[in-house]
Write a protein that binds this DNA or RNA. Sequence first.
RNA 1: GCGCCCUUCGUCUAUCGGUUAGGACGACAGCCUUUCACGUUGUAAAGACGGGUUCGACUCCCGUAGGGCGCGCCA
Length: 474
Amino acid sequence: MSSPVVTRFAPSPTGYLHIGGGRTALFNWAYARHTGGKMLLRIEDTDRERSTAEAIDAIIEGLTWLGLDWAGEPVSQYGRAERHRQVAEELLAQGKAYRCYCTPEELEAMRAKAEAEKRPIRYDGTWRDRTPSEAPAGVKPAIRFKAPQQGETVIEDAVQGRVVIPNKDLDDLIILRSDGNPTYNLSVVVDDHDMGVTHIIRGVDHLTNAARQIQIYRAMGWRVPHMSHIPLIHGPDGAKLSKRHGALGVEAYRAMGYLPEAMRNYLARLSWSHGDDEIFSTEQLVEWFDLDAIGKSAARFDFAKLENLNGHYIRHMPDDKLLMSFIDFLPHAEGGKAMKAKIDEAMMAKLLRALPGLKERAKTLVELKNGAQFLFAERPLPMDDKAQQIIKDGGAEVLAGVVPVLAQVSNWHAHDLETAVKSHAEAAGLKLGKVAQPLRAALTGASTSPGIFDVLEVLGREESLARLRDQASS
RNA sequence: GCGCCCUUCGUCUAUCGGUUAGGACGACAGCCUUUCACGUUGUAAAGACGGGUUCGACUCCCGUAGGGCGCGCCA
């Protein structure tokens, strides 16, 4: 029996949880679930300049919205700095690291020179073999890892396969800054080791870091975790979906009206697949998810497909559940707070009754919100351009004819209303559409809506007749 | 510049040497229809290029081109 799987999601809190991070978290989560293991959350906050408490909150909220959870409390990497320092000292004591007295300015000059001469940009090992006695006075040293210079470092990656990096291309990285703070590559290794992480699943942008980290694991005599470097998500143009290029935080997707279940389904299908399966539940994802089905090429983010998937989830969600999702969504939508304030028991009932007709027409919760607008509107109803046109083009007269008919319907239900309107249309020699559109315009203020008889029923007799009379010619 | 990775319809992908290269989104067309949708039927649409290996390559190897990632006292 092998030990239980431990994965981790380790974002740096320098901004919101972007969509690529969300998928990395999803893969870690799904793999942990699939194997009966657990996922840990570690906040990589060692960069004190850029890490913020707001970002931590945004990440946690984003993960929570996505429906991803983790075992235990989030770990602060910065909080473990003392331990990282100890490891750096240990490496130093063992001769596997050394003090480097180069100043940042010198290093910058070194890089500039290398670039100008079109040489690989690498630390030249100035202090690798010098003795501390040669140290310049007044310069605080950083500690560098003494990386092997010959041979190669092999990454056995579940996704990338066997990746071989020549050691000559990996220079001596700083593991402890001159101010005594550990750097990323050291902290990651120490934390993953101490936290018992068995499987590292992260973006391929960390692939070369993996090589350096493996060298540190070796130097410490620690076991190297299983690694999976997953492809990045690109924008529609093929370029990296970076923060600078319009990459959005998961909260933006929430505001755009996407359902977490749809996001999970969509994200799961980026660089991962299970045969021809396109739409599947999170339970199925957990059941099916495995590392060997992850592809190596980057995927482009496609809003059209996300939207299609989202529409599917909206349509198939039970009405009561959808209503709850809708109400939870409202505060995040434009003008949604005002709508939410209007939701009382009666409105809940109306929404629930209207939802079957509404959800067929909505691909996002924003569209659902817009579609439901007519339920919240108050007389006199605001009318959009098309609706006004319908009323003007003879609609008002049609309404004048049909209102008395509707007023006589004793049982105000869709079926009876339909019977009444249809026979009226027939008697008047009008096609049903000629009657339905004016009704729709007057009732909803728009030219599109759910089935008109359902609209009449949901609005109720009094409100319906009042709205119709507002627009009927006298 | 150096290193690593990638390349099947516009997009996401299936294919693990032998298929009429399949599915999904999107597009287009038809049907349904009180609007818009939904639903449904159908159509168009792909192995980057060039060499090998093989009886046989989308699949294996090499090269070319294009793309991505990395090369901080950032993570």
